[in-house]
Design a protein around this nucleic acid. Structure first.
Lengths: 140, 140
DNA sequence: TCGGTTAATGCAACACTATTGCATTTGATA
DNA sequence: TATCAAATGCAATAGTGTTGCATTAACCGA
């Protein structure tokens, strides 16, 4: 199932309304290969001859993040669709510093090791954020 | 040697001037246990009865980052002193989501594994960013 | 299909964060 | 101590993110 359709299902199942702005944001994020910022989304929607208030975009993105449908990529200040909807948990990103293209993966062993080290340091981790920047195959 | 003294040495050795603003920023970051934003620094300096323009603070932090004397903690939008000056390379952070206190560590095995996975995915990593959020011993 | 209800949106205003160009100041060197 | 380039401070501006409130529209049941 496509990302957009799946997301709409999740929204409905949690009692959230499926509105035009939410669909617009989902479609924009779906079509992007690199992280898009709220204002990126605003511009991209406008190019399609439509309009969304930036406040709405912020609120929609907050919601989608809380539902784990999109991720915030801190090193880029933008958002991407979750590419591993079937594998919740610890997601990691490879981000090309040149073109911004993003690949997502997850690795249980790595996650476990990280947690072990944290515990040994007296820390109780809840969430791991891992972003590697470098060059993708094409940009190299 | 203290963080400030070491940093001043590095500045001199690279041909950068050791100025009052640079020393103020270094001392502020040195004294902080949690990440501080440029405007945090501005306020903290003012509380000591002094003043720095925020533009200067941004520029000083950029420089210190490029020299790997401070790190930017993306999940907090703030800066911390590098606590492992003797161990350059891949640094990782444990950040308490409640009090913001930060612990720094590095782990070669983890780093190596990460790079291997990236390579296998056709990606050439240059820099790893890892921040785990959770609770520190005290906040738990 | 059509109202009624309430979540969601859009707008206005504002607060915070970050950047640029340029005149002035100051640290390092001789 | 005088010189000179680097660094700072200032002014202006651009970009990013937040809040409150009136209006709109998605969903639900009749």
């Amino acid at each position: 199932m496509s990302f957009v359709k799946y997301s709409i299902q999740v929204l409905r199942s949690k009692g959230y309304k499926v509105t035009r702005p939410r669909k617009e944001v989902l479609e924009t994020v779906e079509s992007a290969t690199a992280p898009v910022s709220p204002y990126d989304i605003s511009r991209m929607v406008q190019q399609r001859g439509k309009h969304l208030d930036h406040v709405t975009i912020y609120r929609v993105l907050d919601l989608l993040c809380s539902l784990n449908l999109v991720h915030k990529v801190l090193s880029r200040g933008g958002f991407v669709k979750c590419g591993l909807l079937d594998k919740p948990g610890c997601h990691r990103f490879l981000v090309c510093r040149q073109c911004g293209v993003l690949q997502e993966f997850t690795d249980e062993a790595l996650c476990y090791q990280e947690s072990q080290i944290a515990r040994r340091m007296g820390f109780y981790p809840e969430h791991h954020l891992t972003e590697s920047s470098g060059l993708c195959q094409r940009c190299r």
